[in-house]
Design a protein around this nucleic acid. Structure first.
Lengths: 205, 205
DNA sequence: TATGTAAAGTTTACAGTGTCAAATTGGAGA
DNA sequence: TCTCCAATTTGACACTGTAAACTTTACATA
């Protein structure tokens, strides 16, 4: 469909990629409701109707931005996981901390990524290792999966926990009411329950 | 400001409430992007500029709808919790199941409620008992809070877990890729981790 | 009853949006 | 050089939010 790589359009160098980049910048600077076809086009230096030749309307552009955002999200998680200690607990802690940090630092992009219908997740991504965010999660959760158990159980628990906290924090459920906004301090309960993961899954060592 | 209760406007019976109701219907039938000032006005049988006299623009209407939606959400949780067994585990299980069911049955309203900035949560709501959704959660979590511990720890764990699962399910992370869409089956891992709550908090009985 | 006032709703207008059809541009191959 | 064709622009249309001016209605007061 819209493979913006390895293909040089005639006039603009690579308009599709430029539009996605413009969109992410607008998202970061001005929020989700300012993400507009015409604004992206103007920022990329083309006329207002140019994006129609690369994406299927606004929905298509948003989907493309979400896909790129998801990849940046994945790289952020990868980098964050590599920062801390490399034992199973350290890796999953760093991964979750990176998850929250990305959400706090890129709230609009985070919201777009997880808005309904924008995600082209398929079955392949489950076993894709570091190639996808889900694969990254699966890798990191693997040491906590008891033998003979469906790994998706632990993955569901971990992802639900960290995603729920991140989303609720952005929504202002935690924090705003308290007048407190240090998300790392509020994060402690999530880490505590993450520790229960080991208790729930007796190590077969 | 906009107290639509106990006050009979002159022409329309209660336009503010009618607009909110119209908005929720549009949300349910056509999704979030179809929620428009003019559409709400038309559905309520007034001209397109009438809502401006009751709400502060589209953002104000959305906030009012979110507030009403949050109250319906609260009542849904209350009803769901009353359905199952009334021991602490049964109550929290039913509450979480109601949380997920509401999200699945009202995806657009659920998204609006938890979209950033639409929530007027304040400190009072924390101790409001059944009067607010957070109070409801606090009540239900109370039996799992160890003596001398901040109840917000358990509340954060439970809400993050159930909210994260619900939101990710709506986003299609679980389910769609599998071709499986029975949210109650996929829900099991959340329930399992919820059981760890008891293990994390040794009952002082 | 007559009048004034303020709220509620309508009309009109304008800038910005997505989307489509037609015209135009500019580079690649003949 | 000429032609073709994809990329882009131009122009138009319907729809949106918003603001101002205007009209209608209900109520209080004299």
């Amino acid at each position: 469909m819209n493979n913006q790589t390895d293909k040089k359009p005639h006039h603009h160098g690579d308009l599709a990629a430029a539009l996605i980049q413009s969109g992410i910048e607008i998202l970061t600077e001005s929020g989700l409701d300012q993400l507009t076809l015409r604004r992206c086009a103007a920022r990329a230096g083309v006329s207002h109707a140019a994006p129609a030749h690369h994406f299927d309307g606004l929905a298509g552009l948003r989907a493309a931005i979400a896909q790129e955002g998801f990849d940046r999200f994945r790289r952020h998680l990868l980098h964050s996981r590599a920062q801390g200690p490399q034992d199973p607990e350290g890796r999953i802690f760093s991964l979750c901390r990176g998850y929250l940090d990305f959400a706090v630092e890129n709230p609009a992009l985070f919201a777009l990524i997880f808005s309904c219908g924008a995600l082209p997740q398929n079955q392949d991504s489950l076993n894709a290792g570091e190639a996808t965010a889900y694969g990254l999660l699966r890798e990191t959760c693997a040491p906590f999966v008891p033998d003979g158990t469906d790994p998706q159980i632990v993955e569901t628990q971990v992802w639900s926990l960290i995603h729920g906290f991140s989303h609720l924090f952005l929504a202002g459920i935690f924090g705003r009411g308290n007048g407190q906004s240090d998300h790392h301090a509020l994060f402690a309960p999530v880490m505590a329950l993450l520790n229960q993961l080991g208790a729930a899954a007796p190590d077969p060592d």
